[in-house]
């Protein structure tokens, strides 16, 4: 691969790099993860942003987040950022609601709201 190719290369462009052996682990997705996925599909179906918008924020979050955050943690961060940029939700209302949600209790089950 040429030096020019390497110079412009961002962290998410992983193809062809060296890496460890494949880890075959899998997990069933938790309800909250499926909800994040559903929110993405709904938000993109409404035209608030595209999959490219999702990726732009994920990639701008940087390489560290790929190691320190789980897949759907990164996704909800990006979905939220895109919704704020699109003017669908405001930072203030988000902050206020997150404070309120946290106060409901110590587990996701306590805090999840009227989802079911």
């Amino acid at each position: 691969m040429s030096n020019a190719r390497e110079a412009g290369r961002r962290w998410h462009d992983m193809g062809g790099k060296d890496a460890e052996a494949i880890a075959h682990g899998e997990h069933d997705f938790a309800l909250w993860e499926k909800r994040v996925d559903a929110l993405l599909r709904i938000a993109t179906a409404r035209g608030f942003f595209t999959v490219d918008g999702l990726r732009r924020v994920l990639e701008d979050m940087g390489e560290d987040t790929f190691e320190t955050m789980t897949y759907y943690e990164r996704w909800i961060a990006s979905v939220t950022e895109n919704l704020i940029e699109a003017g669908v939700i405001s930072v203030d209302e988000l902050n206020a609601r997150m404070t309120e949600v946290e106060a409901r209790g110590p587990t996701y089950g306590d805090a999840q709201g009227a989802g079911e």
């Binding site: 909250w32 909800r35 609601r97 949600v101 989802g115």
Partner: peptide, 16 residues
């Protein structure tokens, strides 16, 4: 235990 990112998911879902 409720995580920061789960809290964000709940909040965004409710606001939408």
């Amino acid at each position: 235990a409720l995580s920061y990112w789960q809290t964000m998911e709940i909040a965004v879902r409710e606001l939408l």
